[in-house]
Structures are given as C-alpha cells and as structure tokens.
C-alpha cells in the first residue's frame, strides 16, 4: 500500500521523546529560583535512560506556577550508579538509583 502522506507526517517539537532507552544523559547543572523537582544531588551527574514514561506529562515545575497548557514533555526513568553519586559509597558497586526526570533537565552526552 502506497501511503506517502503517512510517512510525511512531521511531529511537533517535543511531541516525541528526544531520548531513547540506553542513551547516556547528564542532568543539567542549573539552580533555578523557585519550585523544581530535580534533587540537587543529581545536578551534573551522568546516567542512563532506563525507561521512557508514556505519555508525556505537563511539566510540573511550570504547573507549579499555574502554567498547565503547552508544557507537556516526556519524563524518563534514569539510572545512576550509586558510586557516581556519592564519594566513598560503601555498598555494592552494582547499586543504583533510579528517578524520573523531565526532558528539559536532561542533556545528551
């Protein structure tokens, strides 16, 4: 079946996830004033995308200021090695932390 129209569909910005499972990403090193949902201990740390959370959700940092429209972005479950998070981590080197982070906080490595 020849459906060129279907293959020509172009999604809008942020309509599809920017990262894939297995991508290495870094949490932005930023310190915004006000409400945020990315813990400080993760800023600047590199991790791996473990899962894309479907569907995209409203950016709850924006939502905190009453902006509910037009700010949908994907959240990802990102895995970090505990040994990358904490100097002198005493548990097993296989231990990890997983957390959901919205796309606007993640940078491609």
């Amino acid at each position: 079946m020849n459906t060129p129209a279907l293959s020509a569909v172009r999604p809008a910005l942020f309509e599809r996830p920017s990262f894939a499972v297995g991508d290495r990403v870094r949490v932005s090193q930023r310190a915004p004033i006000g409400h945020y949902r990315v813990p400080i201990y993760l800023r600047g740390i590199a991790g791996v995308v473990a899962r894309i959370i479907e569907p995209a959700f409203v950016d709850n940092e924006e939502e905190g200021y009453g902006r509910n429209a037009g700010s949908k972005r994907y959240y990802y479950r990102v895995a970090f090695a505990m040994t990358d998070l904490w100097n002198g981590y005493t548990g097993s080197p296989n231990d990890e932390l997983q957390i959901e982070i919205i796309e606007s906080w993640l940078e491609q490595i």
Binding site: R37, P39, Y75, D95, E96, Q98, E100
Partner: peptide, 9 residues
Amino acid sequence: VRVSDSTAV
C-alpha cells in the same frame, strides 16, 4: 540495591 526516588508524576 535499587533505590527509586519519586519526585514528580
């Protein structure tokens, strides 16, 4: 040990 920190939705 896999710790999940819930922060958002």
